[in-house]
Design a protein around this nucleic acid. Sequence first.
DNA 1: GTCAACAGTTGAACGTGTTCAAGAAGGGCT
DNA 2: AGCCCTTCTTGAACACGTTCAACTGTTGAC
Lengths: 249, 249
Amino acid sequence: MTCVTTAAADPADEPAAPPPAEGEGAGEKPRRARGEQTRLLILETALRLFRERGYTETTMRAIAKEAGVAVGNAYYYFDSKEHLIQGFYDRNQLAHRVASEPVLANEKDFAARLRGVLHAGIDVNEPYHSFAATFFKSAAEPSSPLSPFSRESSPAREAAIAIFRDVVEGSSAKVDPELRKELPELLWLSWMGVVLFWVYDRSPDQRRTRRLIDGIVPLADRLVGLSRLRVLRPALRQVLALIDTIRRD
Amino acid sequence: MTCVTTAAADPADEPAAPPPAEGEGAGEKPRRARGEQTRLLILETALRLFRERGYTETTMRAIAKEAGVAVGNAYYYFDSKEHLIQGFYDRNQLAHRVASEPVLANEKDFAARLRGVLHAGIDVNEPYHSFAATFFKSAAEPSSPLSPFSRESSPAREAAIAIFRDVVEGSSAKVDPELRKELPELLWLSWMGVVLFWVYDRSPDQRRTRRLIDGIVPLADRLVGLSRLRVLRPALRQVLALIDTIRRD
DNA sequence: GTCAACAGTTGAACGTGTTCAAGAAGGGCT
DNA sequence: AGCCCTTCTTGAACACGTTCAACTGTTGAC
């Protein structure tokens, strides 16, 4: 009961649950949703506190208290404190997609598309910069499910690569066909590099990251254009062969 | 007194301290070294336990107990558990230098020099792979003193870059003069990338990392050679300009 | 010799993430 | 109704990294 009332009182701004049309004790709502509701309540509370106080400063006890549940309850739904971040992960991934939509719909030039997507990614993440830097260490641990290369992150990763596939395929750029296949993943990898840079970027408003993007995009554009040059054919082949070698276990 | 007897009773296998020729109260040894001795004892014990049990599995209490001191004493010499890793850092840096010496002394070819240095780096770190993966997360946090980009790591970083400067300057390769200045740092950055890959590498004996090196070296060699090509001049300029932009705050 | 200053050392205590045995709350049977 | 089974919830308890006020031994000045 406590849970229900608290959940109703909580102004969760993104209700992924069915419309909570609750009268009093009217038990018409699907009972199965109870668990999911608590899960969401805990997640929302956690992310809010992370944003407000930072990751390390937010204790599991504080999350539980604020959500009106016992601390053990949070561990019933999330394996660890770090696992709470996966929610943040997924949500921002989606936001990146949405924010990229306009430029992907209206722009045909490869460089412009890429630039738009990269800046959109930073835009979306900007509010979380300080907290992202703290939680980033979790993502860096190879065994962590939060690692961008981990199996658990696979869906989010694929979704991210899909954005860059869109960048390539919707563009008017003429790309070497062999490179074209690999390009989305390479661009995603570059994006990871940009994020890495961004996390470390202490300049006001992360201006250096913006400049990095503005510098890297025409460079990538030029390299992609150059990819069809005859002199560079062997080098390109070498790169593609290396990628292939690395990929197969 | 407790400390002295306990320390003496402890079979520290790596005594970097002067010969402990203690009769009774024979106070001939430099009193100042007392602190340094304890510090070293704690560090050695910690690194040994890290190697034996792994980083997270080794508790500060275990380190203190094994070293025969109180847990608070470890914190007198090291600000945190993470700071103990800095010792590991410095030591392996030196080992990398030493392991690179032969190839740097005998080889003139750029690719061979680079390849030798990279493989030497992996050789040196290989025994610590499992533990490095765990402690890597500490290094990933931007605010951490362990970050390779942090101020505290500056000496180790400079030393590492110096190795790659040696790679470039001692080689017979003809390099674009503008690129030559930046190349050591770029190579170090690539090395960081290789290390990142290595940390994530779960293949037996980290064979994929070895293959990555073998693939990346001829590629870098070719690119460096290409750097003097006229067609690529603007692209190179663009890269150098970008680096310059990024570097100044 | 006395005393003050100081580096070195101690272990109890704090707050943290996490675990776990115990219990509550229904839902589906007879 | 009574009963069992699953899902959910609880909060005390654990081990950990870290802090801190108190203590010890040594040095140097008078």
